Simulated assay, not measured.
Amino acid sequence: MKKLVIVIFALVAITACNNSGNKKTDGDVSSTAVLNEDLSVVNVYYFYGKQRCKTCIAVGNVAQETIKKDFAGNKNIRFTEVNTSEKTNEKLVEKYQVTWNALIIVKGDDAVDITEEAFATANENPETLANRIKDEVNSRL
């Protein structure tokens, strides 16, 4: 009986990340354009799949709002949403070995993947995630 409950819970959790529909935003870019960008720019990449759960959306929102609010007007910092299901983003997804959703901050060859912390804090402690993003971006400026 316990195994059945665990299996059902796992299926519900997996399905939740696939139930929020398609959302195309202005931040969607092709991997070709991103891969050809200036390596002196700090890129905050939010990788997401075709459909997103509540936490997936929260991670993207906190990251985007943090960059807009705390780094407004700074041309050396760029927030980019990357839809992993789009064929045009395939090279970028491969470059960072993204298999699901991810939040990665990059400057040149210096990259940090803060996905685990992002998903652990985005809903309950968004300020913790925002502070981590700010710290990682500032350390690369």
Rank of each mutant, 00 (worst) to 15 (best):
E127F: 07
N131E: 13
I57Q: 05
Q64F: 05
V34R: 09
W100F: 13
A58K: 13
I67W: 00
F9G: 10
T32E: 14
L4F: 09
I77C: 02
K50S: 07
D113I: 02
F119L: 01
E37I: 09
S30N: 05
C53G: 14
E116V: 07
V93Y: 07
K50W: 02
T88I: 02
F47K: 06
D38K: 09
K24N: 10
N83T: 12
K23I: 11
D110L: 11
Q97G: 03
I77W: 01
E81F: 11
K107H: 06
D110S: 14
D28A: 06
A118E: 01
A10M: 06
G27A: 14
V44N: 08
N43T: 12
G60P: 02
K23P: 06
E116I: 08
N22Y: 12
Q97R: 04
I14E: 03
K87T: 11
V41K: 06
A130Y: 03
S139W: 02
G49I: 01
T84V: 03
K95F: 06
N76V: 07
N18P: 11
E117K: 14
I114P: 03
T128H: 05
V62Q: 09
E117F: 12
I114W: 02
E86I: 10
T88M: 01
D38S: 14
T115F: 00
S31W: 00
V62P: 12
Y46I: 00
K50T: 08
C17K: 02
V29K: 13
L4S: 13
T88L: 01
A58Q: 14
F9E: 09
L129Y: 05
V29R: 14
A122V: 03
I114K: 04
V12Y: 08
A102D: 03
M1H: 04
N36H: 15
T80D: 00
M1D: 05
D135I: 06
S31P: 01
N18E: 14
N19H: 04
R78E: 13
